[in-house]
Structures are given as C-alpha cells and as structure tokens.
Design a protein around this nucleic acid. Structure first.
Lengths: 338, 338
DNA sequence: ATGAAAGCGCTAACAA
DNA sequence: TTGTTAGCGCTTTCAT
C-alpha cells in the first residue's frame, strides 16, 4: 500500500480543465489566463502537488542524476569532495548517486555499468588505483556520456579535469623534510598507474634533486591497492626499515598511505619523528590528535568537488558539443602540527 | 549531444517484430517461440540493450531507489553504515540516494522533501540531533512511505528500528572507567532529544549507581548540535574542568564528541589519561593512532546498515500492510588500546 | 505465437 | 485562451 501521489490529471478533472491547461498553468505559461492560473496554482498548492520526476525524466530523456565514483567514502578526502559535489548538484536540481570502487578494477567496471543502467546524465570519477585499462571509460565517453575526472585523472580521455597541483604539493612536503635536516627520504606511493602518483613522485624527486641528492630507486615503494590492504604498506615500510642505510624520513602520497605508514611504524615500535620522520598528503580531521605530530599536505577537497560538478553540469547542459576542455589545478596547503 | 540508447522499438524495427513481442521475448515469456526468443536475445545482447529504467519506473510506479539521511557522511560511523546499506540495496537492484542533515533540523526537512520529490520507494533515517519535532516524518509515514529508523530512532512512529544496545555499551564503558579507579565521572552527551542520548546516559547512570556513586547532574553536559560545533564541546569540557571537585574522567556518547573532547583537552593542555581519563563511542579507524590511548565503544555499523536495509526492502516489497514491526538491538564492542 | 492498443505522468505541437 | 493528440520506453491486456 503505497502513497498515491496526486497528478496533473487529478487536478484537471477536479477543476474541469484539460491536463495541458493545468500543465501550462503550473509552469506559468503566458498563454493561460491569470484567472485560470490562479485557480490551478492554488488548488495544486493545497494538495501539495509535486510533478512526478520520473515522468519528467522520461519526457526530457534526462534523469537529472549524476554518478560519482570514488575509491571509498570512508575517507575524509573523498567525503569532503562529495560534500562539495552535492552542494552544487542539489542546488541545480540534480541527484547524486555515489558508488565506490574500493580500489578494485572489476568493481569499478561493475559500478560503472550499474550507473549507466540507471541512466545517469553525467559522471564524476576518480579512478581506482588498480585501473590501468581505460576501455570501459573510453567506451562510455565515446558513446557521448559527459565525464569529468577529478583527483585521479587520466591522460587518454579528453575532457574536463580537476585536481590539485600534486607536483607542487609533493615538492613542498619533501622540501620541508629536507629543511628539517633529513637527507635520505623514502617515498611510499600509490599505484604507479595513477596520474597523482606520477605527479607526486615527480615533485618528490624534484625536491631531492634541488638538494643535489641522488635518488635511490629502492626508496620509492608503490602500493598497488593504494593502502587499501595494510599488508601492502607493511611490506613497503618494512623493506624501507631494512634498507641500508635506513632512510630517515618517509613521504607518503595519500591519506590512506600516510595513516597506513603511521600505523605500521607504531606497531613496529618506531618513534615518529625521532626514529623516522613522516609527512604525507592527508585531509583527515584527526591529524592534530595523532600521537605523532606530523605535517601534512592538505587538499581543498570541498572546492574540488564543487568545481568538478560545475564543469560537469556545464557539459550536460551545453547545447552544442564542447570543444574547449579545462584542466584545473587547485593549490594544496601545508598544515603543520600546532 | 547525448548518447542515444537503443530501445525495444529499435530492436522490433530491425527484426521486423512488434515491440510487445520483443518485450516478451526479452523477459523470456513462455508464449514466445524459442526461435524468436533466440533471435531477439542475441540481437539485444549484440547491441548491449539496457531497458530504460525510467520507463520501467514510470510503468511500475516504483523508482527503485531508497533515500538515506544521516547527519554527515564524513564520519566513520555513518560511512560504514552507508557501506552496509549499499551492499544490500545494490544487490537487490536499488539505488541509494544519500543526504546529510548536518545535525540541522531545517536541513533535515528540506532534504526529506527533496527525497520525496525524487519519489524514493523508502527511507532510512538517523534523525539529526536538532530534531525534536517529528511532524515531517510523521506526515511522510502516514502517507504510506516505508521508513526504517537506524541508530537514532524515534518513539512516536511505529515501524522497524535498528540500533545497538546503547544502554549496555554506555554501561560497559562507564564500568571500565570505574574499574580503572575513577569515581567522579562526567558525561558529555549528544542532544537530549535523541533516543541514543537517553539510552547512553541511562547506561552511564546505571553503572554509577551500581558503584553507589551519587550522580551529580552538573557532570552531565548535553551538546545540542552533537559536537558539530566544536564550541559546544569546548563549553562543556571547560565547565567540567571548572567544577569542583574536578571530575577524573569523561564518558563521551558519540564519535564526534569523543574526538571533540580529545581536541579540547589537548588544546587545554590536559593530559589523557593522567589528568583526565576519556572513553566514548567511536568507530574511527584512527583510534589506535591517537596521541592518547583511549578505550572506545565500537558499533557494528556495517551490519546495522545491512539489517536496516533488509527490513526496509521487506517493507517496500511487501504485498500486504506490515503489522509486525521489529526493534533490533545489535551488540557493541569495547576496543582497548593495544 | 504474434500484434495492436492502451496507459504510466508529463509536455508540446497543432487545432480550435 | 483552452483542448486534443501524440509521444517519451516499456509492459500488458486484449485481439488475431
């Protein structure tokens, strides 16, 4: 027994008008007498008439919903992004459907198919760390689905992209470790496939070179699952601890990896920063409460979500094919323990 | 220029059949010859035909989507619950639309209206800490919308409810503080309107009484916005610090409040647990990394989401009005610093 | 075994 | 200014 919503037809019948007149009156069409408009509007308001969005969607061939794929929402960075996305989307009358890839390639594909089957009007995606084949996204893109990449972008697909200046953020973080007097600095990075990994490792390397430090490739550890599996991080950190000479500091390229390293170091009884310094990207709100006071690179996540959504809605609502695609890089911020 | 999906009509035309035959063939109706079925199925598969869910929804008068309202997704407890919800909902072919009340009553109402306007088939809600008037929910419930409450439930609406044994969880936490030798234990609680607040404060009081400790009402502080505003927690904690005698321990009734207290204490230079012991509800994955090793009461959030969703889908798909409503209480778990 | 037609709720081209 | 009709994609009675 489901609530039976009232329809235009009901109003038409009650007021002895045609459905089209009612429809037009409700949209305040100029070709309807103000008298009729008034009656219709009042009656509709009284019954709390809500146009059926599904019927509208069918008519307009638009679902007024956009899909979002992130690796996981239980991650401050992504949940902040989602807040930004929703703020813009809801404002413009779009529903946001959130899906998680859990850093898993197959899950990303399945989730994408699912979203397509729900006929979303557009897609916002930060690809999973396990994604190295882009055919699923390319296919969707070629078939005309508006897509905007954020955070983890891809090169091969030409569309809007929103990220931070990952190179600069990583550069700054590494420079900070260098300024603190560390010379041997390791890097625990995300999957090698990711754009953000390349850029962040790039910034890390640049800082080292700036200080004329020869880079030891063995000090760069890639985590294919982005730290989703702690064992990955464990292996990476333990290998670093075995290295000789043992590095003095670690730069972690993502939220999950920063806290992951911290977890592993703590369990291994390595004091931060005395025995091993640590810096990394993180948007966690609990940073200041952690047992070790670490400096982090913070991203304007909320803003990133907003910008990406604005660009997507622009694509969706554009009358003519968009040719001019933007790649926007926002600035990161170093947050020091107070 | 939007991707033009293929329809049953396209298939019918290409195969020189009627749309009804195609429709029936695709649903494997017994009244279609297996030869025709085969041709249709193969052709549909080749073109990767996906039935338009919007058309289906219009026909069935079902959107196959459920709404979820939580205070905020950037909160481990809620993001874990959402994972549980999605696991069940997607499995059964439902889309989940997530909205946040941000512990704000007006926002909750607006968001509820929004969900209603998107014609959701059912609602899962954990009410905001600022919600003391239930008319918006009552109206929706009376009009026939299936609703299941989780976490923060309400008494006045008869339907399924899923929560944890809040009384027991709070009791255990308080007993632990008592066992550690603290006698004067304060409680920083959520809004007084909430079911969870009543139950958790109840468990706290019971533990104190068990130890024949007279309860000092001044040691119970309520935070109307659930710690959403740090100033709230600040005021509460500072008042407790001024009290004489100053309490030796704080029991915080929610995730946000536990970390909020920790933040305020840290800023005030109060060492945990030496100067002030702290325990509370929390599902944060970073607990073991916090500067102070605190014991927390953890909830089976993922499971809570699953159970609530199963009950909601049961309501949605039930042919006859459901009369027998369940209130399910899951067990909490004390997690000690290792 | 297959097709024609109606209808879900709404809008819009066309008629009046 | 208002009404009639068709159609969005699909299912389903009711013919054939």
């Amino acid at each position: 027994m489901k609530y039976q919503a009232i329809t235009i037809k009901d109003i038409a019948k009650a007021l002895n008008l045609s459905t089209s007149t009612v429809s037009r009156a409700l949209r305040d069409s100029h070709e309807i007498s103000s008298a009729t408009k008034q009656v219709v509007m009042e009656y509709a308001a009284k019954l709390n008439f809500q146009p059926n969005p599904i019927a509208l969607s069918l008519k307009e061939r638009k679902s007024h919903s956009i899909g979002v794929i992130v690796s996981e929402i239980a991650n401050s960075f992504f949940s902040q992004i989602i807040n930004g996305i929703e703020s813009v989307a809801n404002e413009k009358g779009y529903t946001v459907i959130i899906s998680q890839s859990h850093e898993n390639f197959e899950k990303e594909i399945r989730t994408l198919q699912y979203l397509a089957s729900r006929s979303i009007d557009g897609l916002l995606i930060s690809v999973s760390s396990a994604t190295n084949d882009l055919s699923h996204l390319k296919g969707m893109h070629q078939s005309g689905m508006p897509i905007v990449f954020f955070d983890r972008t891809v090169e091969d697909i030409t569309t809007h992209k929103v990220m931070v200046d990952n190179y600069q953020g990583a550069y700054n973080a590494t420079m900070q470790l260098l300024a603190e007097g560390h010379h041997s600095i390791a890097c625990v990075a995300n999957s090698e496939h990711l754009s953000i990994t390349k850029d962040r490792v790039g910034g890390y390397l640049a800082a080292l070179q700036q200080h004329n430090i020869t880079v030891d490739p063995a000090l760069i550890k890639y985590c294919f699952h982005g730290g989703m599996l702690l064992t990955e991080v464990e292996t990476a950190v333990h290998e670093l601890l075995q290295a000789s000479p043992r590095p003095e500091a670690i730069f972690a390229t993502s939220d999950k990896l920063t806290t992951g390293c911290m977890r592993v170091l703590k369990r291994a009884g390595i004091a931060i920063p005395q025995d091993m310094a640590l810096t990394g990207f993180s948007n966690s709100e609990l940073i200041e409460l952690l047992h070790a006071p670490i400096t982090v690179v913070q991203q304007p996540a909320y803003e990133m979500g907003q910008v990406a959504t604005e660009l997507l809605l622009q694509l969706i609502e554009s009358k003519r094919p968009v040719k001019d695609f933007k790649s926007i890089a926002l600035q990161t911020r170093m947050v020091q323990p107070q």
